[in-house]
């Protein structure tokens, strides 16, 4: 039978944990806080519309004879191949929804801690700066993974299920790895991007504006550069353009621009590296006690 105790302060008899994922409580709290926002829940549900449409597409592609009366000439458009997965994972809508969800649920990840001086509470505990960053990164990676990796793997499995054979898998044995690699790449990139933005200001609204402004300004700069130089390499200036180029490379389809995809991978990787260096410096400068 449980001990009945008076209210008040009691010493704890147990042993404090010395090993294990220290960052997980931070990630869990971040995810919980994101879901506390009503608009977030609605947008989160909305962001699965493409996944549902693509799932219907996979089903229809296997039942073309049944749907002939509805989908005339769908044989060409409804081909489930690496390009199908590339389209799903690099469509503008998915990127937009990632930005929108992270603007709502991720903008305050570091900004709010700076604003409400919560960082000193974290670092006064047995927590390193890396643990803190991993905890915050986990929140972004979780949502990006839910919008990219999970639906893409499910679409892949649905294709196998509806076709009733492993032919698709044997035709493209590398495809599952490509899905995992590109989704992981998106998780890393958006994590760095959102955390960098969130660490630049204490004002959550400013961070939200920054997240969208940098993303779409890079697209505008690409457009202007292309008009001036008429060079396909202008695409290296655009975040969206680079993400789509990398997707084309990873899924072995023809890229939209005649630029080697590894250059886009390099540009985005350098961006992530610089973001991590900045974050490390920013957190190293945090004064826990003044």
């Amino acid at each position: 039978m449980a001990e009945v105790r008076e209210k008040g302060y009691h010493h704890w008899e147990g042993q404090l944990r010395e090993k294990g994922p220290v960052f997980w409580p931070i990630t869990r709290t971040g995810i919980k806080l994101a879901f506390q926002r009503k608009r977030f829940k609605f947008l989160f549900a909305l962001s699965f519309i493409p996944a549902i449409s693509f799932a219907v597409g996979v089903y229809v592609s296997e039942r073309l004879e049944d749907f002939k009366f509805m989908a005339q000439g769908a044989e060409k458009t409804l081909q489930v191949n690496p390009g199908f997965f590339k389209t799903y994972l690099s469509q503008d809508f998915i990127f937009f929804m990632i930005l929108l969800l992270m603007a709502l649920g991720g903008a305050g990840l570091i900004a709010d801690d700076f604003r409400h001086k919560a960082i000193q509470l974290y670092f006064a505990r047995p927590l390193t700066r890396l643990d803190y960053l991993l905890g915050k990164a986990g929140v972004v990676a979780f949502f990006v993974g839910l919008l990219t990796l999970v639906p893409a793997v499910v679409l892949f499995l649905l294709k196998l299920l509806f076709s009733g054979s492993f032919k698709f898998f044997l035709d493209y044995p590398w495809l599952l790895l490509s899905i995992i690699f590109y989704s992981a790449f998106l998780m890393v990139f958006f994590t760095c991007y959102i955390l960098l933005a969130s660490s630049l200001s204490k004002n959550r609204n400013f961070v939200i504006a920054l997240i969208f402004a940098v993303y779409y300004l890079s697209e505008i700069v690409r457009g202007i550069s292309y008009v001036i130089f008429r060079s396909p390499y202008s695409t290296l200036l655009s975040i969206m353009g680079n993400l789509q180029q990398v997707a084309a490379g990873v899924f072995q389809v023809r890229p939209a621009q005649d630029v080697p995809w590894y250059l886009s991978l390099l540009v985005l990787s350098v961006f992530c590296l610089l973001a991590l260096i900045f974050l490390r410096r920013k957190l190293r400068g945090v004064e826990v006690i003044r």
Binding site: L33, G108, H116, K117, A118, Q120, L121
Partner: peptide, 10 residues
Amino acid sequence: PEDECFIPGL
């Protein structure tokens, strides 16, 4: 700490 510090939303 001396400062007013907390995690908003919790």
